[in-house]
Amino acid sequence: MNKIIILFAAIVTLGFMAFTNHSGGVYKTNTGNINFFSHTAVEDIAADNHKVKTAFDAKTGKLQFSVLIKDFEFPKALMQEHFNENYMESTTYPKSTFTGTIDKMSAVNLAKDGTYKSTISGKLTMKDVTKDVSTIATFVVKGGVVNAKASFTINPTDYHIAIPKTVAPKISNEIKISVDADYTHDTK
């Protein structure tokens, strides 16, 4: 009798472990790229962050991003300082996150090389302000690597990013955010 109970318990345990082990379906990277671009007649401003952490769950379509603000690199050192000090206040708000879903996850066949599209929708948090964001992403599956590209625009004032009048002509109120990440299967 006891043996049966142990066996049963073992099966249940292993079952749970298998069920809760997401390694089967999680794709991730720590070196995703986010670029932002602000265009005005006076000046174009661009910066890149090559240390973006992002992952998605191939079963549920859940998608996450985590971005350290201070990892954005600018061509000019002074711009980077002002971005962190004055606009993003990155000591107070070090991180920006996105949590959402790949709406048509089932349409993206990760086992077959090809190009797939899906809408992405979710919540973007910056400077403690959370807003809904949605866009269309392109997934290119090739040899087990999933490249995802998407872009959308945000208005800095939505995220309490104060822009003084004197520099207002240099900073667009439609900042283009471009995301480019190569996901690989998380085998851990």
Binding site: F16, M17, F19, T20, N21, H22, V26, K28, K53, T54, A55, F56, D57, K62, Q64, S66
Partner: peptide
């Protein structure tokens, strides 16, 4: 394991 799973955080 279940508890971890319910608080799903991919990162």
């Amino acid at each position: 394991r279940l508890c971890v799973a319910q608080d799903l955080d991919l990162l």
